[in-house]
């Protein structure tokens, strides 16, 4: 029981220098296709006027939410959660419908045209499973990205959070993200979650197709059951010689 891990990230945006080593490391590790990326350095832009300026850089990625909307959006379960909390995509099982991409309030997913599957940060599970840090964390030049087990009191993430106020990218949408920020994130940063509308296909499926189909089958079963009951009562007299 004590072995159950809860992986997550702690990000110190004060230490992010927007060098994008993480983006390149991620691209290299996962051969992310050109023009797309799994992780970002988000900013709300330059604040103020010359010479009173400031700019906050926010390393950003899949938040590995505990209440991940992508999990509900994925019809097959190709998007799934590992026991350690990482939200994953089984690329072999993904049929590329893109519903998860539209469901993520963080826009942390994209559709990979080459492979025809949804793609996002998977916590570099291959690396962590062999004891390495995720590629972005390992290479973070400013030391802004941290990764570890929240269930381990001695983990680097828990140590980093100790005595610090932890902030998460939560507004009226709270999907229980597993990424904690050590600095308050500016309100106009691109990273904040946004409510997503269900696609018409999903609405049709959820509201009409599933209940309608169940109803149709149910009615038929009921009809046949009543016929069967009648047959039991009246017997198979018609055929008797």
């Amino acid at each position: 029981m004590a072995d159950v891990k809860r992986y997550g990230y702690v990000i110190d945006s004060a230490r992010c220098i927007d060098c994008r080593a993480c983006l390149v490391a991620c691209r290299a590790e996962w051969q992310v296709p050109e023009g797309q990326t799994r992780i970002w350095v988000n900013s709300s832009g330059l604040k103020g006027t010359f010479p009173n300026l400031s700019q906050q850089f926010v390393p950003f990625q899949c938040q590995h939410c505990r209440d991940a909307p992508c999990l509900d959006a994925c019809p097959t379960g190709a998007t799934y959660r590992r026991e350690d909390g990482l939200v994953m995509i089984d690329e072999e099982a993904c049929i590329g419908c893109g519903l998860c991409v539209k469901a993520c309030p963080y826009d942390a997913r994209f559709y990979n045209e080459e492979k025809g599957v949804a793609e996002k940060c998977n916590g570099c599970y291959t690396r962590i499973d062999r004891g390495e840090l995720p590629a972005c964390v390992a290479t973070c030049v400013g030391g802004a990205r941290l990764f570890g087990d929240f269930n381990d009191p001695d983990s680097v993430v828990n140590k980093a959070l100790k005595g610090r106020a932890a902030h998460r990218l939560i507004n009226e949408i709270d999907t229980q993200p597993n990424v904690y920020y050590l600095e308050p994130i500016e309100e106009d940063n691109q990273s904040w979650p946004e409510a997503k509308e269900m696609t018409p296909a999903e609405t049709f499926w959820r509201k009409l197709a599933t209940p309608g189909t169940k109803l149709a089958i149910g009615a038929m079963v009921l009809g046949q059951a009543s016929a069967f009951a009648k047959q039991l009562v009246s017997g198979e007299n018609e055929f008797e010689e």
Binding site: G35, W40, G77, M88, E92, K102, A103, K196
Partner: peptide
């Protein structure tokens, strides 16, 4: 890539525990 999509309304989530499905068998 960095421009977040704009959408109104909220996804109708069904509350409750997330299903933990069997892990994929190293196909990733």
């Amino acid at each position: 890539l960095t421009a977040a999509g704009v959408a109104a309304g909220r996804v109708g989530l069904i509350s409750g525990v997330q299903p933990v499905l069997a892990q994929s068998n190293g196909h990733l």
